[in-house]
Design a protein around this nucleic acid. Structure first.
Lengths: 125, 125
DNA sequence: ATCGGATAGGTTCATTCATGCATATCGACA
DNA sequence: TGTCGATATGCATGAATGAACCTATCCGAT
């Protein structure tokens, strides 16, 4: 219950990223785009979502292009113009994609956290 | 069993990275350093391991410094000089670290693969 | 008709991190 | 004692990615 590792174990931070790509390794969907899609769904606006997440609009716009280009059908329903400038919401497919990734991610979150705790315990004995 | 997503699902590639850092977000241990440590253990040489993994010696050396600096005790036992130029092996602690990460990673590998298959199935129905 | 605010998209700069290259050091062995 | 090959380390270059900036376009409401 006391090893050379012990004093440092509490300073270790765990990180992980999950993402999906096409054959050319172009990013399709990962934590960033997933959060973005969720927030667009909630806010009804790309700009509002970008502001909240602290991402630049330019970057986000480019990223979302990649997703739609890959799938070949729209995940976003964008409207330009109007007194409010425009707005963006998810299509049915967009919502389905987000829900599926939600479940996937949640499951991994839990498992990985457990695994990490075991990892720490292992170094402690 | 047939959705807009279906034609594209087989083109999706899954990726993920797990790594650990200190409070300053300096990388301590991740897939790269883990593989490197394993291969050094097997080969008994940093250079040989670098050659096999296709990493530059310079980069690897810098990365391994970070791990040891963080823990404050050696994970590597390095010998310079000699007719063979020198060699490097893992200390007991180095081996323990690798074993613990082995188990952690294997468990995550399996779980994440399962989760991904469910994800695909979900988009297929 | 004009205005405002969001979507659309080009371009350049900054930062990060690995690569490439150079050089120094070490020490068993011939 | 000189050699050889791996470890040790600085530095300059290069590639990738996002930030920052700018301009254009759309269109409902005034």
């Amino acid at each position: 219950m006391e090893t050379k590792f012990s004093p440092k174990l509490s300073d270790i931070r765990l990180h992980y990223k999950i993402w999906m790509s096409d054959e050319q390794e172009t990013g399709i969907l990962g934590d960033g785009k997933w959060q973005m899609l969720k927030l667009i769904e909630e806010k009804g606006s790309m700009k509002a979502a970008c502001d909240e997440l602290g991402y630049t609009y330019r970057r986000t716009w480019g990223n979302l292009q990649k997703i739609e280009k890959f799938f070949g059908f729209p995940l976003l329903e964008k409207q330009r113009g109007g007194s409010d400038g425009g707005h963006t919401q998810l299509t049915e497919e967009g919502k389905r994609l987000v829900r599926a990734f939600d479940a996937f991610h949640l499951s991994v979150d839990n498992h990985i956290q457990q695994g990490f705790e075991k990892f720490i315990q292992e170094l402690n004995k």
